[in-house]
Simulated assay, not measured.
Amino acid sequence: MTERRRTVLEGTRTRRIRNPNDSQIEAAVLNLARESAVVHSETTDDHTYIQVWQRLDGLYQLEHRAGSPAEHYQTMTVSADKVHTAFIAWRNHDEHWTDPFTWKPIGHLL
């Protein structure tokens, strides 16, 4: 079994939580209001993270970055459940966590 990442979860409506458990991640994502965001980042590398923003139109804009700006990707989904599952899988180093989505690179926009 792979060790979990050491992480911090915080957001527009979520106070900073070190090494959040599954329930805390689920609550942060499922309680997102429109125009709010949640970021889940590694404690040792602030350039490695997963984040979500619930847009005004209700879509979840999910992004992840794996170090450099060139490794920044984005996808959209209507499913809060898929987002919270992705946050947990990312934290757990699940190598297939990106599979349910179609990602596009956005590093060139940053």
Rank of each mutant, 00 (worst) to 15 (best):
Q54P: 07
V8I: 15
L62E: 01
H40D: 13
E95T: 10
R91T: 15
R6H: 15
P69T: 01
I17P: 10
E26F: 06
A33D: 14
D99Y: 08
V29M: 02
G58A: 01
R34I: 07
R55D: 13
A70G: 08
H47L: 13
W97D: 08
D22L: 06
E3A: 10
L30K: 14
L9F: 10
Y73Q: 11
M1D: 10
Q24G: 08
N21F: 02
L56W: 12
V39A: 02
G11H: 02
E71M: 05
E35L: 11
E26Y: 15
L30G: 02
Q54F: 01
Y73R: 08
A66I: 00
T2C: 04
K82P: 00
N21H: 07
Q54V: 05
P105V: 01
Y60G: 02
T77K: 11
Q74Y: 00
R65P: 02
S23C: 01
V83E: 05
R4M: 03
E63P: 00
A27S: 14
K82Y: 09
A89Q: 13
E71D: 12
N21P: 00
W103N: 06
L109G: 00
W90G: 07
R55C: 11
T48A: 07
T75F: 04
Q51V: 01
N31E: 12
T85Y: 03
E71T: 02
I25Q: 07
H96M: 09
L62M: 03
L110H: 14
N92A: 15
H64A: 02
E3Y: 04
E71A: 12
F87P: 03
T98G: 00
A27P: 01
D46A: 11
A37I: 00
Q74G: 00
I106W: 01
L30D: 11
I88Q: 12
D81M: 06
D81L: 05
T75K: 04
D46R: 12
L62W: 03
T12L: 09
M76Q: 14
H84G: 02
S79Q: 04
L110C: 12
H108G: 10
T14F: 00
Y60K: 10
A80V: 03
Q54S: 05
T98Y: 04
L110W: 14
R5D: 06
D57M: 08
H84W: 15
D57A: 09
H84I: 04
H47Q: 15
A80S: 15
I50C: 01
L59F: 14
T14V: 15
S36Q: 11
T75R: 05
A86L: 01
A27G: 08
Y49M: 07
A89L: 01
G58Y: 08
T2G: 04
R18M: 14
H72G: 00
T48C: 04
T85I: 09
T98H: 05
L109C: 06
A33N: 11
Q74E: 12
T44L: 10
E42Q: 09
Q24Y: 03
W90Y: 15
A28N: 02
A70D: 10
I17H: 05
M76G: 05
T77E: 09
T14P: 04
N21V: 08
G67R: 02
W103I: 00
R5N: 10
F101N: 03
H108C: 05
A86E: 05
T48Q: 07
M76H: 13
V78Y: 06
S79F: 06
E63V: 13
R34D: 13
H93E: 08
L32Q: 09
V38G: 01
N21C: 11
L56R: 12
T85K: 11
